[in-house]
Amino acid sequence: MSIKKKYILLFVLPALTLYVTFVIYPFIYSFILSFYRWPGAGARTFVGLQNFKDVLFGSFGSEFRNAFLHNIYYFILVTILELGLGFLLAIFLVSIVKGKRFFQMMVYLPNIISMILVGFIWSMMLNPQIGLVNQILNHIGLGVLARPWLGDPNLALNTVIAVNVWRNLGFYVLVFTASLLDIPRELLEAAYIDGASNFKVITKILFPLTLPTFQTLSILLFIWTFNVFDIVYALEGAQAGPFRSTDVLGTLFYRTAFGGLGSSRADFGLGAAVAVLIFVVVMPLSLVYAYIVDRRSRNA
């Protein structure tokens, strides 16, 4: 018995120690730091709820609300586009035989490229002087549609979202493909024998049976949206220009904690308060996700 206990400790402790030290403990530490004012070095000053007041209602209030609303907008648009188009393209993919593997591979290709590199590639594509997007539009006589895609405050966030969809859509296509292929063929055969149209098959069989996938993916998308940073940083910089029109909580958090030029007050305590607020929004969904994953793996 004692030998077994020793072995269990030997197997469990290394991973658990590292996980607690660098994943769990930092979250607790963030909560503590959020009550202090601390420029990162020197003494900390306990300020109570002051950081939260500043972030929510005070000097940072409008900036925080601006970024938060962008996150919500981002989430809604990305969910509709990535899940909607992903589902549709997956149906296309599973309905063909020839070239299926080629299309699968190509669709997934952008996903293996770093988001920051994708951002740089697209900032070239969208550049007002040499960008291919405007040049193509001019070339085919649609010059009136040419825009400063990244420079117009009314367009910039949508452009960022479009680039995000360009990179990530393939992932959702493949997840839906896998989930569609799990559906028993006999169900479809029976429906077709009963004279169902493709539209009916999609809406009455394929969609309801992939609904769990939709749910799981929307939960993940919500969490991931609050993680968005790289793409904004690559396309619009840490200042999330023009005029903060592409600012999200990820970039706001970066600026408050690590300065990032021109932030009015870089402070670890204030940054921690921003992190805690994001955490409060995201944590319930992280728990729901853990619950779903656990339940599913026990049923399997």
């Binding site: 930092p26 958090f253 904690a257």
Partner: peptide
């Protein structure tokens, strides 16, 4: 351990930095 599956580690970057 499972809870960490969907926990954005970036949010904890300040303490990680300090540690």
């Amino acid at each position: 351990i499972i809870v960490g599956l969907a926990l954005p580690a970036r949010l904890a970057i300040i303490p990680i930095y300090v540690m």
